[in-house]
Nucleic acid binder design. Structure first.
Length: 269
DNA sequence: CATCGGACCTGTTAGC
DNA sequence: TGCTAACAGGTCCGAT
C-alpha cells in the first residue's frame, strides 16, 4: 500500500497526537510481523515521544532511549483510537498513550515491521538507503551518476531504495510518464537531460500527492480514517488498455522486476 | 559486484 | 452461485 506520500500522510496525521505524549504501555497481540518484535521495545514505556520522523518509507517515533521504527509494508496502516476501543481483525499492536488514546497498527498481510533503534545509532535497515527525493541533494545528476553501467531497466532502477527512497510501483510509473521515458529503457543508457526531467517529475508528483493525502486504491486511510485523493490524478498506473489521457493511445502493460508496469507507447520513449 | 527469483502473508477480484 | 487462480501499494535474502 504505502509509498512515500502515504507514509508522510500517516506521519503528519499521527504527529499532533503523539508528540509530547508519554507511552503508558505496549500491547503486542502477536509476537512478530515481518520480524519478531524486539524486547528492547519495552524501553519505550514510560518515555515521552519527542519527534515523529519519516525516513524513506519508515516511521520513527523518537524518545530519550531510542526510537520505535515502523514500516507499513504493503498493507499496514496506523490509526489514533481511544485505547478502550476493541481491536479489530489484524490490529496487531497498540502503543498506548497517556491521554487515553492509542496508536493502533493494523496490517493484514504482515509485511510490516516494528523494531527498535537505539538512541544515537542508525538501525541497519536504514543504512544504505538512498537520497530523500524531496531533500536538497536529489537531482538528475545523482540519478545519472548512479545509473552508469546499470543494465537493469530505468523503472527498476528508480524503485531501488539504495538510489532514491520512497518511490514505489505507483509513483515510479507516474513519474516516468511525466518525464516521457519508456520504463523498459536500460538505466545506464538514459541521458543526463532525461534524468533531470525524471528527478523533477518525481519531486513534483510526490509533493503533489502528499497535498492530496496520498493515493487510496483500495484501503489506504490516514490516521483520521480518511482516504487520499491522488488516485483521481493517476495517468497510467492501473490504466492498462485505457486511452492515454494526453494522446489517446491505448496504454501498454508489461511486467518489470515482477511488478505490473503501465506506460504510454507514444508519450514515453 | 549486479541482477533475478522466491519468499513472506491475507484479501479481493477476475475468470471459468 | 461457487471455486480457483491471479494479483495487490514492499523489500529482504539467497542463488546465479
Amino acid at each position: 500500500m504505502p509509498e512515500l506520500p502515504e507514509v508522510e500522510t500517516t506521519r503528519r496525521g499521527i504527529e499532533p497526537h503523539v508528540i509530547g505524549r508519554a507511552v503508558r504501555g505496549l500491547i503486542l497481540r502477536r509476537a512478530d510481523l515481518r520480524w519478531p518484535f524486539p524486547q528492547a521495545l519495552q524501553n519505550l514505556i514510560g518515555e515521552r515521544i519527542t519527534v515523529a520522523e519519516r525516513r524513506a518509507k519508515y516511521l520513527l517515533l523518537h524518545s530519550r532511549p531510542g526510537a520505535a521504527l515502523l514500516h507499513l509494508g504493503m498493507s499496514g496502516s496506523l490509526r489514533i483510537v481511544d485505547a478502550g476501543l476493541p481491536p479489530r481483525l489484524h490490529d496487531h499492536v497498540d502503543i498506548v498513550l497517556d491521554d487515553g488514546r492509542a496508536l493502533r497498527f493494523n496490517d493484514p498481510r504482515r509485511f510490516g515491521a516494528l523494531l527498535w533503534q537505539v538512541a544515537g545509532e542508525v538501525h541497519p535497515l536504514l543504512q544504505g538507503l538512498g537520497l530523500e527525493p524531496l531533500g536538497p541533494d536529489f537531482s538528475g545528476e545523482h540519478l545519472f551518476a548512479l545509473s552508469r553501467g546499470k543494465r537493469t531497466t530505468v523503472k527498476v532502477f528508480l524503485m531501488d531504495q539504495a538510489v532514491v527512497v520512497g518511490v514505489g510501483n505507483i509513483y515510479a510509473a507516474e513519474s516516468l510518464f511525466r518525464a516521457g521515458i519508456d520504463p523498459r529503457r536500460e538505466a545506464g543508457k538514459v541521458s543526463l537531460a532525461r534524468y533531470q526531467r525524471l528527478a523533477d517529475a518525481v519531486r513534483d508528483i510526490l509533493a503533489h500527492a502528499i497535498t492530496r493525502g496520498g493515493t487510496t486504491l483500495r484501503d489506504f486511510l490516514n490516521p483520521e480514517g480518511e482516504p487520499g485523493y491522488f488516485e483521481q490524478e493517476l495517468q497510467v498506473y492501473g490504466r492498462e488498455g485505457l486511452p492515454c489521457r494526453v494522446c489517446g493511445t491505448p496504454l501498454r502493460h508489461a511486467t518489470l522486476g515482477q511488478r505490473a508496469t503501465v506506460w504510454c507507447p507514444r508519450c514515453q520513449r
